[in-house]
Amino acid sequence: MTGLRTALASAALLLGSAAGLAAATDGFAAFTTETARRVAVRRHPVELPPVTLESDAGTRFTLGDLRGRWLLVDFIYTRCPTVCSALGGDFAQLERELAGPIAQGRIRLVSISFDPAHDTPAQLSAYLGRFGARNAAWQAARPLTVEGLRRLTAAFGVTVIPDGVGGYTHNAAIHLVDPDGRLADIFDPGDPERVSETVLGNLDP
């Protein structure tokens, strides 16, 4: 009898655990926070908060002002020696590959700094210069308030932690914002071809 009861209890626990773990990993698709946010935005694009940004040219705008176009957004800090350089290189390549739709005003690139205290418009401008940004369609910008930065990184799912030696560790990615102003997809850095293919596939003919 104890054997039978144990078999029943074990079967129920196995089923329950499998269901629980499936729910906790989006159907065994996402084991890390980073994968989870990508799976989540693909299923349900995320509305972005209207946070005022200051561009490298000193003008103020929100991502909402850029609606009607596809946006490629990355998060950087200009002193970054490692990952953001890869992101900068990717954006430079994307600017070249997508030159056609960019010239038609259908795509914009925005690099947002999470180190607004240091990244003044002059620094942002120098950052763009370093990567050979060719025209105003690639902007760098900083949020004007700490609260704005917090809301923006929370909506995009970007986690920034100080690395203890003056820099930051952060999850680096290229974010795709659709013409309705919603975060719709997230890509790894280092594969700009895949990003441009996806964006071109999304553009209306």
Partner: peptide, 13 residues
């Protein structure tokens, strides 16, 4: 214990 022979149920949990 009646539901946990040889500790199997507890082990699964």
């Amino acid at each position: 214990e009646r539901w946990n022979r040889s500790g199997i149920s507890g082990l699964i949990l």
